[in-house]
């Protein structure tokens, strides 16, 4: 029986100059939980996500992954990041490598897996996201939806315990959103712990275990997605949902 949360954030603050992006955020994500974060642009949701693997360093507060503090001195941050996968809005595939090499790079270099083993694993993951035939392609030849599915396979290759999604479908043409969400739904069903920043309210309602609404650097309201969509308690949540639903 595991009780301690996978991600524990306490009193996270972050500012850029005089612009306060995160105000004293507390958040705990349990194993196998799918937490969906919504809110207007500039509300701090991407920054919050990026604090979870220290792509952004919080000004104050503590981030713990499996009880290990990321903000303490002397932490091997690369080792912690290896356990926390991230999928970006702009995919960020490595354009000078084939799709297969994109997926294999970290397992071989970070986990020191033998290349044959990493390749077999990578091909299995590409099959899982439906892109076996693209293994030797260069990222530039992929559609947005395909690129994002490769990016998910690349993150999964490290066998992370947590996957962070930073607006994974926002840069996609509408007809490609579905294929990426389908992969994400499969992962959620398999028990992957996920934190998803998104504007896809359908996904939030269907897949999310918990919904966070952020505005101006604070979590305004959180709850079960269905209940929050149907009867938001806060006026600001109501106002936001009335615009996006």
């Amino acid at each position: 029986m595991e009780t301690s949360p996978l991600i524990q954030m306490n009193g996270i603050t972050k500012s850029y100059g005089s612009n306060v992006v995160l105000r004293d955020i507390d958040l705990a994500v349990r194993r196998q939980e799918v937490v969906v974060v919504i809110g207007p642009s500039g509300s701090g949701k991407s920054t919050l996500l990026r604090c979870m693997n220290l792509l952004e360093r919080p000004d104050g507060g503590d981030v713990r992954i499996k009880g290990q503090s990321l903000t303490a001195k002397g932490v091997d941050i690369a080792a912690v990041r290896a356990e926390v996968g991230m999928v970006f809005q702009r995919f960020n595939l490595f354009p000078h490598m084939s799709v297969l090499d994109n997926v294999m790079l970290a397992p071989v270099q970070v986990r020191k897996r033998p290349p044959e083993e990493a390749k077999a694993k990578a091909l299995a993951l590409l099959a899982k996201v439906g892109l076996t035939e693209k293994a030797d392609a260069k990222p530039e030849s992929l559609s947005g939806g395909q690129a994002q599915r490769v990016a998910i396979a690349r993150a999964l290759a490290m066998e992370p315990e947590i996957l962070l999604f930073d607006e994974p479908t926002s840069a996609l043409d509408p007809e490609m959103v579905g294929e990426v969400l389908a992969v994400m739904k499969t992962l959620a069903a398999e028990g992957m712990t996920m934190v998803v920043v998104t504007h896809e309210m359908g996904f939030a309602r269907e897949v999310g275990d918990r919904l966070l609404f952020m505005e101006q650097g604070a979590i305004v309201e959180e709850g079960v997605p269905r209940e929050m969509f149907e009867s938001p308690r806060q006026e600001r949540t109501k106002l936001f949902l009335s615009k996006v639903l």
Partner: peptide
């Protein structure tokens, strides 16, 4: 984003 993707995968 390239550097961030590399870092997020655990690369030093």
């Amino acid at each position: 984003g390239q550097r961030e993707a590399a870092y997020s995968l655990g690369l030093t």
